[in-house]
């Protein structure tokens, strides 16, 4: 058939163009541009600092601002990009119905736009990080494989939810309701030591724990992510992309009549 698939020469250009379009539109009429993506985590940091100041003072080892801020930045990246991948099929419904581009381009483009956005926000992010006492060291290079593995996980999960969302729009509503709960269920702005030892296994059932804990290890502890984290993240990513892609391929024939 004449479908423009992953193997076609123009596929990458199509995905890139969609991603760039998303970014251009997002910052078109804003004066502060990318700095907006820092304002939300900074505001949150102030609130959380007040709430968790007790913990912050008690634990000498903990640089709370550094710990919470790095967690918040990456949590925002993860939660926002899952939603963008999830809604990508419906957002591009018109294009999906009139251009013979393989629809897998839409989640890929949404993910790519989220990665570009994250990389751009690194500029203000690192300035603030140094300000709150971040020591630059070699562990920072692990951020590159980290972003790749995390993006694979997000794309898989988002594609799975996004495919189901074409048939049941509840998925999107359900997800936007659940995500704030996950914010508190994941040790993003509080250390896991705050949880009594006998309940910690519960936290470890949460897949997001491993992605955020790795970030704390890189930015706060200044070490490479632990072997446990790496193994779990890899397993989760492979499982997510495998299941997400399989479900998408199975159900994509019905997209045109349901969008």
């Amino acid at each position: 058939m004449s479908l423009i698939s992953i193997k076609s020469p123009g596929f990458i250009n199509a995905v890139m163009s969609l991603a760039i379009k998303t970014l251009k539109v997002r910052y078109k009429n804003s004066l502060l541009g990318i700095f907006w993506s820092m304002l939300n985590p900074l505001l949150f940091l102030i609130i959380l600092y007040i709430v968790f100041s007790q913990v912050a003072n008690k634990n000498q080892e903990l640089n709370y601002a550094l710990y919470a801020l790095s967690g918040l930045i990456f949590w925002n990246f993860i939660s926002a990009s899952i939603l963008q991948v999830l809604t990508s099929f419906i957002d591009n419904g018109d294009i999906l119905k009139s251009v013979n581009l393989h629809p897998v381009a839409f989640p890929f483009a949404a993910m790519l736009a989220a990665i570009f956005n994250l990389l751009l926000s690194f500029i203000p992010f690192f300035i603030i990080l140094f300000f709150v006492g971040y020591d630059l060291n070699w562990s920072i290079i692990s951020i590159i494989p980290y972003i790749i593995v995390t993006s694979v996980f997000i794309t898989g999960l988002g594609m799975l939810l996004g495919t189901l969302n074409v048939y049941f729009r509840d998925i999107q509503l359900l997800w936007t309701t659940i995500m704030p709960a996950f914010f508190y269920f994941t040790p993003i702005a509080y250390p896991i030591t705050l949880i009594p030892e006998k309940f910690r296994w519960l936290i470890k059932l949460n897949p997001f724990y491993y992605f955020i804990d790795s970030i704390h290890q890189i930015f706060h502890d200044g070490i490479f992510p632990s072997l446990e984290n790496i193994c779990v993240m890899l397993a989760l990513s492979i499982a997510a992309i495998y299941i997400g892609y399989a479900i998408f391929i199975k159900l994509r024939k019905g997209f045109i009549s349901n969008i």
Partner: peptide, 10 residues
């Protein structure tokens, strides 16, 4: 540029 790319052009 966008639409041409969506049509598969390099």
């Amino acid at each position: 540029k966008l639409l041409c790319a969506l049509m598969g052009m390099t």
